[in-house]
């Protein structure tokens, strides 16, 4: 559906996006993650044709963005960051303007506006000027604007910013519902959001792709390391450490402050689950095992590892 090849953007001497390449399939929900200034917005703006890449190539379906920008714009609905809209215009007038620009006939206009007003929950504010709306409502109008012509590709730059928790859940549901038939690309720095909504996540840092895959594969693939927590009674840290380090695959044993029990954290590096080996080892001793669990790696950890400043 969308093919991006070695996309690069320089702002004067500052390299905002550096040789990014990826493909997006129809019906995929892609999350673009990254710290502030990583190049998310710049990438999205280049995809929509709002700014011109310094070098590189974008094609959507069979259209190249240099040769057929209008065709591509017709396929796309775009919600820019912080939903900039005309302050003096009424919401209804604005949406109706968008529909005319998108070439939707008068007779289809009203039902379409009604449908989206219901979907985005903006029925009560249809006849207010955009400038008077709260941030959340403006965001919803922006979302309605992006979905107005039922586009095949939806590009959303931080769609849930400024919304309250209920609305965030609603918007995510809407995105997931649309994502069944449409291609959605969204940028966010809220990790749980990316995990909850996206089929695929691309993490960018300093304009480069540092990770690409589903939330699950990202969690697993991250260097094959994982952590195991153990709570013990009737045991000495020193002997525990010696015993456990003798197991193949355990890299380190660190004590964790705990008043009642001896708690240790094991850093394991092994393709298989080492819990069986650890259990057998403990069974040979007279330690009392109180707690034993493998820590699931969160996207947060992965994100921090990948985007940490060196």
């Amino acid at each position: 559906m969308i093919h991006v090849e070695s996309l690069t953007k320089y702002y004067n001497d500052l390299c905002a996006v550096d040789q990014i390449s990826f493909d997006i399939k129809t019906g995929e929900i892609l999350g673009l993650l990254g710290p502030n200034g990583a190049g998310k917005t710049t990438t999205l703006r280049m995809l929509t044709g709002f700014i011109h890449p310094t070098s590189g190539n974008i094609s959507v379906k069979d259209f190249n963005i240099d040769e057929h920008p209008l065709e591509i714009k017709k396929l796309m609905g775009y919600l820019p960051e912080s939903a900039p809209l005309y302050h003096d215009m009424l919401v209804y007038d604005y949406l109706s303007f968008v529909l005319s620009i998108r070439g939707i006939g008068v007779e289809k206009k009203t039902p379409r506006i009604h449908k989206l007003a219901d979907l985005c929950g903006i029925n009560e504010i249809m006849h207010k000027p955009v400038g008077e709306l709260s941030k959340g409502y403006r965001q919803r109008v922006g979302l309605a604007h992006a979905m107005m012509s039922d586009p095949e590709i939806l590009i959303l730059d931080e769609p849930t910013s400024g919304l309250d928790p209920n609305q965030i859940v609603e918007i995510r549901e809407i995105i997931r519902r649309i994502g069944k038939e449409k291609t959605v690309i969204l940028s966010t720095h809220i990790l749980s959001e990316a995990e909850a909504t996206c089929d695929r996540i691309i993490i960018i840092n300093h304009g480069r792709i540092v990770a690409d895959g589903s939330a699950e594969t990202l969690k697993q693939s991250a260097s094959g390391e994982y952590l195991i927590n153990i709570l013990l009674k009737n045991a000495e840290f020193k002997s525990v450490k010696d015993e456990l380090l003798s197991i193949d695959g355990i890299k380190s044993v660190t004590p964790i402050e705990n008043e009642e029990y001896l708690q240790v954290k094991l850093l394991c590096k092994s393709p298989s689950d080492l819990r069986g080996n650890i259990y057998r080892k403990i069974k040979q001793t007279d330690w009392i095992l109180v707690g034993f669990y493998r820590e699931t790696r969160t996207l947060e950890n992965i994100f921090r590892e990948l985007t940490r400043e060196v």
Binding site: G49, L70, K73, P80, L85, Y86, I101, R102, G142, H145
Partner: peptide, 14 residues
């Protein structure tokens, strides 16, 4: 200054 320039130019207009 309002940023609506971005919204406008990403609509199918030249």
């Amino acid at each position: 200054s309002a940023g609506s320039y971005e919204t406008l130019l990403t609509l199918p207009v030249t």
